[in-house]
Simulated scan of single mutants.
Amino acid sequence: MYTPYIIIFILLVLFVSSFVTVKQGTIAVVTVFGKYRRLLRPGLSFKIPLIEVIHSRISIQNRSVELSFQAVTQDQANVYFKAMLLYSVLDHEEETIKNVAFKFVDSTNLMQALIRTIEGSIRAYVATQRQANVLAQRNEIVLHVKEQIDKVLETWGYHLQDLQLNDITFDDEIMRSMSRVVASNNLKAAAENEGQALLITKTKGAEADGNAIKIAAAAEREAAQLRGQGIALFRAEVAHGMTKAAQEMEQANLDISVILFTMWTESIKHFAENSDGNVIFLDGSTEGMNRTMKEMMGMQMQKVADNQAK
């Protein structure tokens, strides 16, 4: 009585199960009795019920994984790496998808092989380097790994998009020693800069002092020249004035000694006005004046005689 309904229900279930939806960014691998049959692209697809089975769904999107491992340098220093691995399916070709689906039992085995392969490549490279060079060769390590790993991943159906070494550290003792080296280098550089700055300051100061001395010497020399010229001009004017006065005295039939007497009194007046409290001992008696006048006249006569002799 219910047999037709059961058959209809079974047929309906089989009909509904024959339609498969594949998400965007995913490719489904279909097998028949365990053997690869075909691929189902994103969207709604039809498969033979009970015969065709979806073996796996392969994501063609980029995937990432974080790595943490240790390596030993040539000089036996422990280096600790933290890396981020970005990889994806090589392409959408059928053979590539088949490699991805059937090379490994499951994704766990794939990740284990991928991680161990990358760790082995980095360790092999680091083992040839010294501890002091590892930090400066971050890019070289990445290029070396990508060159070595890409060939292996292509046989698995994958491609290494990027490898980032986010953190490279050493043992605590090595890190402390490196910090001390950096600090000492900074102190050395600071000392050298301070020494150069002090040298420049002292050099510039010495140059400024030298220039100041030169300028002062030049000014003093010029002032001395001007003073000498002034004294020479004063003496020339005095001589000219005395000569003119003597000529006028001779024309007036007066004794030239009057000029000497006038100079004597003017000198005494000048001493009194400009002494500024200093004590000057001067014989102001008549005998002293006569003696001074005779000496001055004798000097004048000697000078005239000398001129005549010439």
Rank of each mutant, 00 (worst) to 15 (best):
K202L: 06
R227Q: 07
F234I: 08
E192P: 00
E192T: 13
K202G: 01
A223E: 09
A206E: 02
L233G: 02
R221Q: 13
R176C: 06
S177D: 15
A219E: 11
K188E: 07
L226N: 11
K214I: 08
L187C: 02
E237N: 05
S177I: 14
E173V: 07
L163S: 03
L165M: 05
R180I: 06
L187M: 09
A212K: 11
L233C: 02
H159F: 10
A239Q: 14
E237W: 03
A212R: 15
L199N: 11
A224V: 04
L199P: 04
G228D: 14
T203Y: 00
A208I: 12
G195E: 08
Q229W: 08
E220P: 01
I168L: 14
F170C: 04
N185H: 09
G195D: 06
Q229M: 08
E173N: 04
M175D: 13
D172P: 11
E173G: 03
L226K: 02
M175I: 11
G210L: 15
E173F: 11
I215W: 01
K202A: 06
F234S: 09
E194A: 08
I200H: 13
E220S: 09
R221E: 10
R221M: 08
A208G: 04
N166V: 15
D162I: 12
A190L: 08
M175T: 10
L165A: 07
N193M: 09
R221I: 12
L165T: 04
E192S: 10
T201D: 14
K202S: 06
A218G: 12
M178A: 01
T169Y: 01
V238E: 10
M178R: 00
F234L: 09
A183T: 07
I168R: 09
A197L: 15
A219Q: 12
A212Q: 11
T169A: 00
I200V: 09
V181L: 00
N185S: 10
E194M: 05
D167E: 14
R176H: 13
E194T: 12
E222S: 10
N211H: 05
L163D: 05
A217V: 14
A183Y: 06
S179W: 06
D171M: 02
V238T: 04
T169G: 01
V238A: 10
